[in-house]
Design a protein around this nucleic acid. Structure first.
Length: 494
RNA sequence: AGCGGGGUAGGGUAGCUUGGAGUGCCCGCCGGGCUCAUAACCCGGAGAUCGGUGGUUCAAAUCCACCCCCCGCUACCA
């Protein structure tokens, strides 16, 4: 059986999940569901990145220890994902024991390979912020927040020989053309020319909330080095060898466009140094504005994904993110479009269709009957499934959404048209009715990655949830009438 | 500034890698149909010099050059 390993970044839990992290997670979840449905063995990893200065400071400011604080925040994230029916297989925390061991193991490997050296990190330190800035961050040579003078400070730090991997990275990109997100490919290649080594540690007296270096107990790992390795520890690099062997490497890693550099350059270089296989595809989505404006607290237009989901259901949010935001580019979360989409496409197209068919089936039939398959419907179903299989095999996630998923939604439109064309309520044709019932059932299976709530509601009227890979030929799937006489997938008023 | 992404009917998008009649989708608008259905559904129509100019070609939204407009990125804060 083929495997599929999909990841989201681990989110920084200094605040509750926001629309951006929900976006990444819902998209990843959709793919996890799709591949499962197509019969793949799937592992879906998400989690939180709990180390670092900012967490330490936020925690202390609120009167908690870092660990107490992240324990609370991890729960917040899990609750949010539960509300969205996120089907992750593991929720990793960088304070998990096996993660810490993984980081130490990889660091030791790289150190022994002579890819880590001791040096001086030079930066501009703002006493008020208690952090370093690079020269470019500064405003008139001063701290950008406090506008106070900064001190140039040198600290001991270990460096990863990132620059050493420049040529090998380029070579890798060339021989694996689908690795980089298409929209950002040229930018990354361009920036690669100025590749510098990466500071990967901080002395403990400056930062204590992190994972200790295996070769120097006075230092802890710094930010990304720790975070990126979650993809290894999460799949059992230390704790579950057989799982690791089954799933490594990730098939797709999904992220927002802000962290492309880390995933496309630093991450592969680390893996090269450690002698491990690289992920197959890095997939980046864009950022969202709200009604055309940047989301900000001062504008008061912050969209809380949990609130959206509580009111409208997670189907609506998924559907919006999948179809109303061009995947890979920036998009807008427009309340007007969102509400229109809800009432036109979810209530009117999908929801109304399901109810029409269910109600009508009870009016026309006492029980299911043998019927002659409508070729047009059956051919369309086969085409949809073939298409999804091909796109999935190629990890062509952009087209899975724009072609594969769109076609599933169009199928609902096709059924509405079929119903009108045949005027089934008038002819009372049992053959047509059975074709529609069969189609509705198959539609519910196809919808599972796109609209899991609707899918669940429809399939529960028949005999429960099925995978696409378990579907029988068109005409052989429905064995009983819907268990209810009507079904409301989406309420008109919410 | 350098680099990158985008500019397709009133709005939003797909198509561009591998050129072939402006082809598709959602919303809005106009006209018709239907009454099984959550005033939902279906059909038809109007509406685009595919940002501009020039080039390659029998043929360009699609390839090349230049220009204009919008938006990002330029890394050790995640």
């Amino acid at each position: 059986m083929q495997k599929f390993y999909v990841t989201t970044p681990i989110y920084y839990p200094n605040a509750r999940p926001h629309l951006g992290s929900a976006y990444t997670t819902l998209i990843a979840d959709s793919f996890a569901r799709l591949y499962r449905s197509l019969g793949y063995e799937v592992f879906f990893l998400t989690g939180v990145d709990e180390h670092g200065e900012k967490i330490e400071r936020t925690a202390r400011a609120k009167g908690f220890s870092p660990k107490e604080f992240v324990d609370k925040m991890a729960v917040e994230f899990k609750k949010a994902w539960k509300k969205m029916d996120i089907t992750y297989d593991r929720f990793i925390r960088t304070t998990d024991e096996d993660h810490e061991e993984t980081v130490k193991d990889i660091l030791a490997k790289i150190y022994n390979k002579d890819d880590i050296y001791r040096g001086k990190y030079e930066g501009y330190y703002c006493v008020a912020c208690e952090r370093y800035y690079t020269e470019k961050d500064l405003v008139d040579g001063k701290c950008p927040y406090h506008l106070k003078p900064v001190e140039k400070r040198k600290i001991d730090s270990y460096f990863f020989k990132l620059s050493k991997y420049k040529d090998r990275l380029i070579e890798f990109y060339n021989s694996n053309p689908s690795f980089l997100p298409p929209n950002y490919k040229r930018e990354i290649l361009d920036r690669l020319s100025e590749l510098k080594d990466l500071s990967i540690s901080r002395p403990k007296e400056q930062l204590s909330w992190g994972i200790e270096l295996p070769f120097d107990e006075k230092h802890v790992t710094y930010v990304w080095f720790d975070a990126l390795l979650n993809y290894l520890s999460g799949i059992g690099y230390i704790s579950n060898k057989s799982l690791y062997q089954q799933f490594w490497p990730p098939d797709i890693e999904i992220m927002g466009k802000d962290i492309i550099w880390f995933h496309c350059v630093i991450w592969p270089a680390i893996l090269m140094s450690a002698g491990l296989e690289l992920p197959k595809r890095q997939v980046a989505h864009g950022f969202l504005t709200v009604d055309g404006r940047k989301m900000s607290k001062s504008l008061g237009n912050v969209v809380d994904p949990v609130e959206v989901v509580e009111r409208w259901g997670h189907d609506a949010l998924r559907y919006y993110l999948l179809f109303k935001v061009p995947f890979g580019s920036d998009g807008d979360f427009s309340w007007k479009i969102f509400e229109e989409m809800y009432s036109k496409e979810l209530v009117g197209n999908i929801g109304n269709l399901a109810n029409r068919i269910v109600v009508l089936s009870h009016k026309l039939l006492n029980d299911v009957v043998e019927f002659e398959v409508d070729e047009r419907l059956s051919r369309e179903v086969n085409t949809i499934i073939d298409n999804l299989n091909i796109l999935s095999k190629n990890l062509d996630v952009e087209r899975i959404i724009s072609e594969g998923y769109s076609r599933v939604i169009s199928f609902a439109g096709m059924l509405n048209a079929y119903l009108n064309e045949k005027e089934v309520w008038k002819t009372k044709d049992k053959n047509d009715m059975m074709n529609l019932l069969e189609s509705l059932y198959i539609l519910s299976v196809l919808l599972e990655p796109i609209l899991p709530q609707a899918s669940e509601k429809i399939s529960s009227l028949f005999d429960g949830r099925k995978r696409i890979s378990e579907l029988k030929p068109f005409g052989k799937n429905v064995s009983k009438l819907p268990s209810e006489k009507r079904v409301i997938l989406y309420k008109k008023e919410v």
